[in-house]
Write a protein that binds this DNA or RNA. Structure first.
Lengths: 184, 184
DNA sequence: TGAGACATGTAATCGGTTACATGATTCC
DNA sequence: GGAATCATGTAACCGATTACATGTCTCA
């Protein structure tokens, strides 16, 4: 089995974490349960099969640590192909569809882009992200305006929530851009 | 087949929309594609099977409109059981797990709670929501503080993003509470 | 000696995604 | 006549959830 061509969000999280240091399935579960890292299942039924798939695809390599002890750990490392696919996944352009449908994925990508692709790429990522968000907000605003007549009070509040959430994303991006720009 | 006991987010969206007016699968798809209502698949492969399941569970009833025309529509109505289950689903208490894992679901519930359960229940919902968010933010802040040492610059920014997103939710909830309170 | 953390897995089920498939109606 | 919209579906695949299953090690 080889070459599933797209990395799911969970696979991305796993590859990203393993790229920072080799980890076992248990280690990954611990990260997912004890930190607010994305919001991943952390159930063994999700992560062990995911690791198996990544290994079958040759993106990670498992090595048994403590072979002859009674409690061995299978520790995974990024392969060369794994690194390539991770870099490729992180390099994908930020589209308006991402903003609408996959904001979580974008936020997960951010720290990995920083750590792996470096400062300049991160700034570019944030600038495009910001630009896409700023382009999306007016269409939400328009929806809200059209809604005001319909006397759907609660629907309007919900729309307002959406708009404010995106505004919060935008403010965050602007501030991070400012702070990173100083480092250049 | 009967009695799957929990309504998925998609089922909730469908029941909620149908409760406002009877709708066909195509109508539902249109809502999902043309409005920023939650972020649902809107693919026929998701919604038609979902409607079938809800009908098998006796939560909606489909009736063919335009029987003898060449382009009939199957229009679904909420059944009594469907209404009950919807009310029950909307009445579930807001837990800290919801805040962490299912924020989308909560925001989807909000307008339906407003329209179906009424003003008082909505206020209660928002107050508990706000309280849970306010209880959660400090733990995120703590995580961020512990992170500062580790020189994981980008990770810290990502955490900051999480905190600010929850703060935005909290601000929204506070403002809506204020505005609804005036209506009492 | 028992609780809790360490450690890895499988099996059944369920439902979402993608892609395919079909045909009618409306409007230009 | 052709494009867009109306309208409903199926089939293959994939992966997440839930629950089950097993055993070790450490520390109080």
């Amino acid at each position: 089995m080889q070459n599933r061509n797209n990395l799911s969000t969970l696979s991305l999280a796993i590859l990203g974490l393993i790229s920072q240091r080799p980890m076992s399935g248990y280690d990954l579960r611990k990260v997912f349960t004890t930190t607010p890292m994305g919001h991943f299942s952390s159930s063994p039924g999700a992560i062990y099969p995911a690791l198996k798939r990544l290994e079958a695809d040759n993106l990670v390599a498992g090595e048994i640590e403590g072979k002859n002890t009674l409690r061995p750990r299978r520790v995974y490392t990024l392969t060369k192909m794994g690194k390539e696919r991770l870099v490729q996944r992180l390099s994908e352009p930020v589209t308006s569809e991402d903003i609408i449908w996959r904001m979580d994925d974008l936020i997960l990508r951010f720290p990995f882009i920083g750590n792996i692709l470096g400062l300049e790429k991160t700034l570019h990522f944030l600038k495009v992200l910001l630009q896409q968000i700023e382009a999306y907000i007016p269409s939400l605003q328009e929806h809200l305006d059209n809604m005001k007549d319909e006397s759907s009070l609660y629907g309007a509040f919900a729309m307002q929530h959406g708009i404010e959430t995106y505004q919060a994303h935008a403010r965050w991006a602007r501030r991070v851009i400012d702070q990173l720009q100083d480092k250049l």
